[in-house]
Design a binder for these strands. Sequence first.
DNA 1: AAAGTGATCATG
DNA 2: ATGATCACTTTG
Length: 174
Amino acid sequence: MYMAKRLTADFYQKHATELAPMLLGKLLCRAAADGVKRHRITETECYFGESDTACHAHKGRTERTKILYETGGRAYVYLCYGIHNLLNVVTGGKDFPEAVLIRGIAGAPGPGRLTKLLQIDRSLNGEDLMTSDRLWLEDDGFAAAFSATKRVGIDYATEEYRNKLWRYIMKEEV
DNA sequence: AAAGTGATCATG
DNA sequence: ATGATCACTTTG
């Protein structure tokens, strides 16, 4: 048996392209009034650098995107379509913008649904996942099989980047 | 298929 | 100050 342990700095400093599939099967942990809830991540998607036309930072550093340029291990939460809070994990080294969008957890498919369930909103933007007592990630040794597909909802990106297989979906447990 | 909803960013 | 644009979800 493997004790769940919090993910640490060296893990988050990998590139988003490498880390996105590794986040599948990890536990998204959220402190609530009635205790800590843990949810297994089932779907992720990565956004990688200013050259990625789907990445929020593709037009450079702004007030909203500056968190993406930080060293990996922070949360990037933003409001999408005026309604949904979307949770990303900032990855990689300092001054290179990249992140992994958490698109689904067990029992709550959809990036907007899971944040509603876990009550994650922009007050958690910038949260340090390595030290926070409100939001963090753990590894309990679960190894996930997965498939890679194209990202969704990014019609505005160039064809090259629309076609990247940067969405990772965990296969059903058997 | 289309609305709902509001922060963000570029433009004036 | 204003307007276009969205990394979605729900409803019909």
